[in-house]
Computed example of a mutant assay.
Amino acid sequence: MTKTRNRQRHHKGFTLIELLVVIAIIAVLIALLLPAVQQAREAARRTQCRNNLKQLGLAYYNYESTYNTFPMEKIDFTGATPPINFQQNCNQMVLPYLDQVPLYNQFSFNTIWSDPSQYTLTSTNLTVFQCPSAPSKESRTKPSSVTPAVENPTGYPYPTAVGGYGVCDYMALSGARASIWGATGNTIPTTALSPVLTLPGNAPSTKENRFTSVMHSTMSRTIANVTDGLSNTMMIAEAAGRPAIYQTRKRIVAPNVVTKDGWGWADPGFSGAIDGSTDDGVTINNAKKGNAPLTNATACPTGACVGTCFVNCVNDSELYSFHIGGVQVLMGDGSVRFVSENIGAMVLAAIVTGDAGDQVGEF
């Protein structure tokens, strides 16, 4: 007689402890890999930001090749209706060299940039003006959302209906203010002060405390004017995140808190001169204007020049980026350099000024 035996089948599986160990290992691997992935993404964004600056440099040099001068940062225009006197900026001048001929042809230079008739154009987002590391246009504080709503200029509300102005994370450098020297205890130079040209009807001024970079805010500059050398002089730099206010790494959300200007690539106030601020970014230096010779006492009276931070402390027309450790800048020769947050004030002054005769150190 054949005997049969019942065999029990045993299924192998994970115990609870083994499962927890596997989960822990996976968590550790993710923790190790995530920073590397984030760093790789930021490296790609930083490279694109660098390429944007190079494209802008090529556009400005193509303009210079055509007209034998760099464009003025702000160009004076006279319109048929109020405001009679207003300004357009150099970004509009170089649109044809950024493959934006249709945009250039449609733009009315005889109408102020912020007029509602220009909204379709000025609200256009151009990737060459936006650093990928900076917040998206949609996530930035809108001047129309603060209390009370801010207008730029007065009488021209922010175009919320069309999504706001096309952003600009870069600024053309019009120079360095006397506060770089005054706030750091250095003697303000008495040469290379920038002449000021004013719109008709405004009070005349002969000099101010700005020491010019490659371009000038209200007058033409040529390559020959940059006697310190194009490779030693900054031309365009990051001032990212506008019109939202960022102090250190925090966005300031409060009533009536947006940048004074730099609201878009068409805003004449997108350019700026470096003033510096306190380390927390709350107080921006306010060196006074005056005729040459300018002294520390006249340019920086008590309370005017109190901050010694010049990189990544505040983005209101100051050097500011969302990269770790510094900002990217376009030099006058078309190269892109990375300027550290820890750069010395006098080294920064040397690479911002184009004809002050100062010596450039390592940076």
Rank of each mutant, 00 (worst) to 15 (best):
M1I: 14
G264M: 07
T69W: 04
V282C: 09
F14W: 14
G326P: 02
P135N: 03
P83R: 05
T4S: 08
P243F: 04
T147R: 07
A31G: 14
T278R: 01
Q118G: 05
R210C: 02
L29D: 08
I17W: 09
T122V: 10
F129L: 01
S213D: 01
R242D: 01
A44S: 09
A59N: 05
H11I: 13
P159L: 07
V306T: 09
P195F: 04
P35M: 10
L95Y: 09
T120C: 13
I223P: 02
D275V: 09
T187H: 08
S133W: 01
L19T: 11
Y63Q: 06
T206L: 15
S139W: 11
A349W: 03
I23D: 06
Y97I: 04
T308E: 12
L199S: 08
N315A: 01
V214W: 03
Y165R: 03
A36Q: 12
F310D: 04
G334Q: 00
V360I: 13
L58S: 04
N256W: 03
D333R: 04
D267W: 05
L34T: 12
M235F: 13
S340Q: 13
C168F: 00
G166C: 07
P293K: 05
Q55I: 11
T124C: 10
N51W: 10
M1D: 10
F109W: 11
V329H: 03
A192V: 10
G163T: 03
N342P: 00
A161N: 07
V339C: 00
G166P: 11
A292C: 06
G334N: 06
P301R: 10
G357S: 05
F270S: 00
L20S: 12
N225C: 10
E64P: 10
V314P: 08
L121K: 01
G262A: 08
A149H: 14
H323P: 02
M331H: 01
A31T: 06
P243W: 07
I236F: 04
T302L: 08
G334F: 02
A59I: 01
D279E: 11
P35E: 08
M346H: 04
A80Q: 13
S108C: 14
L330D: 03
S220T: 14
G229A: 11
N62E: 15
T248V: 15
H10I: 14
I284W: 02
Q359L: 11
G185N: 06
Q39Y: 15
G13E: 14
D355P: 09
T259K: 09
S213Q: 00
Y320S: 08
L197P: 03
G201M: 07
N342H: 07
D280V: 13
V128S: 04
E341R: 07
T78V: 13
G264V: 03
D76R: 10
N62H: 11
Y119Q: 12
V327E: 05
A178S: 15
L230W: 07
V214K: 00
L95Q: 04
T248M: 14
G325L: 09
K54F: 06
P293G: 02
T190P: 07
G303H: 13
K74T: 08
V329N: 01
E151P: 09
G57P: 00
V360R: 07
I75G: 08
R242K: 12
P143L: 07
V128G: 02
F14R: 15
T124S: 06
N285W: 06
A292V: 13
M1L: 15
A43T: 05
A304Y: 09
G325W: 04
K74H: 06
K250L: 14
N285G: 03
S335A: 05
